[in-house]
C-alpha cells in the first residue's frame, strides 16, 4: 500500500445536496457528506455489521445506519449510538477547483 496522497473524488455540484453521496474509488466505497460543517468523507461500511451507510438517514451532522439505526458523527466518525461501538473510518478531504479530493492510499 502506498503513502496516502490526495486523490480526485467527485465534483462538488454532483453531490446530493444536504445529503450523503456514495462514491467508489479504487477498492474503497466512500460516503461523502454535504453537512452543516461542510464536506466530510468516510468509509461507507457501517462498523457494526457492514450495511451501506449511503442508504441511511443523514440529518446534516450524523449518519444513521439503514439496517439497525446506529448513529455516527460525520465529522469525527465517533459511534454515537448502539449497536455500533467502533468509530467510522474518516478520510481527510478538501475542495479544489470545484472538485472534492480525498487523502487516502491508492
Amino acid at each position: 500500500m502506498t503513502e496516502p496522497h490526495w486523490q480526485d473524488l467527485i465534483a462538488l455540484d454532483a453531490l446530493e445536496p444536504d445529503d450523503v453521496t456514495a462514491v467508489a474509488l479504487g477498492r474503497h466505497r466512500l460516503a461523502v457528506y454535504d453537512g452543516t460543517a461542510g464536506i466530510s468523507v468516510s468509509e461507507a461500511r457501517c462498523t457494526h455489521a457492514g450495511a451501506d451507510l449511503c442508504d441511511g438517514y443523514f440529518d446534516g451532522k450524523a449518519i444513521e445506519c439503514p439496517l439497525h439505526q446506529a448513529l455516527f458523527d460525520c465529522v469525527s466518525g465517533r459511534a454515537l449510538a448502539a449497536p455500533a461501538v467502533k468509530p467510522l473510518k474518516m478520510y481527510q478531504s478538501r475542495v479544489r477547483d470545484g472538485r472534492i479530493e480525498v487523502l487516502l492510499p491508492k
Partner: peptide, 11 residues
C-alpha cells in the same frame, strides 16, 4: 473494496 452487506433497502 471493503465488503458491504446488501440490505433490503440497498436492493
Amino acid at each position: 473494496m471493503s465488503h458491504l452487506v446488501r440490505t433490503p433497502i440497498t436492493q
